[in-house]
């Protein structure tokens, strides 16, 4: 009958951050308590202003073995990066 509290993944947006970043995990019986635990565990040093929690089981991750097919194609699209284009110095900052 004793069942372990589920595992939650914790994402925190810091004082000066734009994005929530994964900071770690913890156990909690439900989402509300996971948020409270996250506050107590992961913001002891004033690290955060906003917390997201997601049940670890609900995260679908890309299969590591697919790393090649998933990410390599974008490697070849160099024209997506600003440094692809040569702009003469005289033009100034662009």
């Amino acid at each position: 009958m004793p069942s372990e509290w589920p595992l939650w993944e914790i994402f925190i947006r810091g004082q000066h951050g734009l994005n929530h970043r994964h900071v770690g995990s913890l156990h909690a019986p439900d989402a509300e308590m996971a948020i409270r635990h996250a506050r107590d565990v992961y913001t002891r040093r004033n690290e955060g202003v906003s917390i997201w929690v997601v049940k670890a089981n609900d995260i679908t991750a890309s299969a590591p073995s697919e790393k090649g097919p998933l990410f390599d194609p974008s490697n070849s699209k160099v024209y997506r990066h600003p440094t692809f284009y040569d702009i003469p110095d005289e033009v100034g900052h662009m």
């Binding site: 009958m1 069942s3 509290w5 019986p29």
Partner: peptide
Amino acid sequence: RDGLMAHA
């Protein structure tokens, strides 16, 4: 721990 899990 069990009490909190049961509530959830």
